[in-house]
Design a protein around this nucleic acid. Sequence first.
DNA 1: CCTCTCATGTAAGACGTTACATGATTCA
DNA 2: TGAATCATGTAACGTCTTACATGAGAGG
Lengths: 188, 188
Amino acid sequence: MPIKHAILGLLHYHDMHGYKIKDTIERSFGYVWSINYGQIYPNLKALLNEGLISIAEVNQAGESGPGRRRYAITPNGKAAFRAWVNSNPEKTMILRDSFLMRYIFFGFGETTRAVEMIDDQIQLYQKQLARRRDTYQKRTSVDLYARLISELGMEMNAAFLRWLARVREEIIQTMDSGTEILKRRTIS
Amino acid sequence: MPIKHAILGLLHYHDMHGYKIKDTIERSFGYVWSINYGQIYPNLKALLNEGLISIAEVNQAGESGPGRRRYAITPNGKAAFRAWVNSNPEKTMILRDSFLMRYIFFGFGETTRAVEMIDDQIQLYQKQLARRRDTYQKRTSVDLYARLISELGMEMNAAFLRWLARVREEIIQTMDSGTEILKRRTIS
DNA sequence: CCTCTCATGTAAGACGTTACATGATTCA
DNA sequence: TGAATCATGTAACGTCTTACATGAGAGG
């Protein structure tokens, strides 16, 4: 139940609406965790039942539909969160990327198409890196951990771009030399 | 349905049992994709129904229980797979790591525990990097794409380790200087 | 007035994990 | 003979995504 912990973590900063929680998660660490309303609202309800969060304020301007609820973390919530942060992480890192998934089998597709897709990836990650650098320069928080995680994002991004450039070059060399190495494929 | 495509991709190399498919996925690109039997067997059944794979051989030594089935890709399977490889990847990369998830909120936990967890991560990734370098040196395949993807794995691994070392250092500096910067936290 | 952003929620279905049950073969 | 590995499968449960429905407030 990592979503619950993410919610509890964010509520340490200040009280929030469910909408704002999703928004913050997406903008702050969307590349580590993505989320949607189908997860947020049921989890808020559950956390409320468990006494880990409470409702700080309800704004009910209209009469129909649910009110806008601002949630706050309770002392029990803080304790549960602290226990989780201090507990051992499971050691499984999952990286899921549909480009990489295809890439693995590029040898079975068309080489020209492969180069096209690599170029698309290069463009995409160049934009992303530029955006990250911009956000990094403009950041207002002095938080050590937040600063370091955004450095990690930029470094990973840059490393991936360097790798893509190398891959592109090597594929083009293979095309030029016209060898049929690609067809002698084996896997254990 | 990315599992189906992974299965079709692997069957290009040679015919395989379901068991071997899981094993190969885990050993070849387990850090990009993980899988379990609850997904493998139902997907094999579905692919068979769709005519994208066929049964190459059934070994039924005993009499009870299901036979050991070796699967092969059909021409239709190859066509479907090729269409997928050449189709545009969705642009969402998902990185899910329970250490990083905790890391984001380290400021709310105990700093000494944070350093301990960082040290555990360093050990874990040092071992992983050593294992990857070993596998890389011993690889028998000349496949361009396979070689490059394992280089990506090692580079990402190394970059993460460099980052962890820097994080450790900066945290310890903060502890020594005894400033209370950690407590002035804000997030947008 | 219309569109965008803020805001809350549910239902259906897809996807993934865990745990269990079964049995053959291989090797020490 | 016992343990490890090879091998197939399902049921229950949990998580995640997608699509939909609803409505308030702000600003052009």
